[in-house]
Design a protein around this nucleic acid. Structure first.
Lengths: 164, 164
DNA sequence: TGTTATTTGATACTTACTCCTAATAAAACT
DNA sequence: AGTTTTATTAGGAGTAAGTATCAAATAACA
């Protein structure tokens, strides 16, 4: 995504009006690498513009997506995530299937293209490579849990499940 | 996914009971290349077992997924799709962002792996390559629509939108 | 500053999916 | 085969992500 100032100009050029709510969302997304959900953006936005509604967050995110300044990601974690880094050539994702966290994967993969036979039947707009797996934090957590279970420290385990 | 008979044995071996509902879902998925949703499987299943519930379809699909006999796909079309072809090496997907249809893409991509730097932080279980774009049917439809609009055949266009 | 069209936020709605529970039926054991 | 046990089912209620609607607020611009 561009800078906030550039986004303001771009939105105005497209005939959108500039509101504190929209600028606030631009600011939150600016250089954001946390792959936020609509909810998490909403929570951050309320700290700056107390009366902003979730509806406005969704609306603005969809506008940003339709202008190509934000990439909506559907990674099987139950809700959409929005990535201001829209580069699809060198920028992919790793999703932890335990905690749902998403990490950027910077790499350029050669030769990932539709086979010739399919080419006439499908006009490719974007290619997404998604790595599914378990992040080191969750690996560590499950190792600890297993060790506890084998020693039958059930109380500690139960406590950890509640805390975690 | 394996044959229905093999699936029956596998489920029994895992301590699951064999019911007409489960076998029916096995049969529907067998060699199914349409990337069905839970809803579409439910509709097909009701033709064979009239009283089957959506809940049972979801439950069975989750069981199949946890046993690794079905691959749940989250492709940004708003609902999960279930693929009995669980080969992740040579089998990828192309999703039409207009009609939502999913096509198989058979190709083996070399070198699509996590960069070394990330390797210790993330244990990769699966890699998915997704092509997003527009299928030929939807390209054709939008071409027709544009041609109509330019000739200002508004009534025909409106009619087509309702029909499509 | 006044006018007007866009945007906002509250509320209601839709939809994909899960939870709960009494009834049912598959498997285990006579 | 009959009985018991226990997993499974149907169906309704519930949840949560996201969308539609619309009166009121406000940005843009004269």
């Amino acid at each position: 995504m561009r800078t906030v100032d550039e986004m303001v100009d771009l939105f105005k050029a497209r005939g959108y009006r500039m509101t504190p709510q929209r600028q606030c969302i631009f600011r939150i997304l600016q250089d954001n690498t946390s792959h936020p959900t609509a909810e998490s953006i909403y929570r951050a936005a309320r700290k700056q513009v107390e009366t902003i509604s979730l509806q406005t967050v969704y609306r603005t995110l969809n506008e940003l997506a339709s202008v190509g300044e934000v990439l909506p990601l559907e990674l099987g974690t139950g809700m959409a995530r929005f990535d201001p880094n829209t580069d699809q050539e060198t920028h992919h994702h790793a999703v932890c299937s335990v905690c749902g966290k998403v990490r950027d994967v910077f790499a350029e993969y050669q030769g990932v293209a539709l086979p010739d036979a399919l080419r006439p039947d499908f006009d490719v707009v974007a290619v997404q490579v998604v790595f599914k797996g378990v992040c080191s934090a969750c690996q560590e957590a499950s190792r600890t849990l297993r060790a506890m279970t084998s020693r039958q420290e059930h109380k500690a385990k139960a406590k950890m499940e509640v805390v975690g």
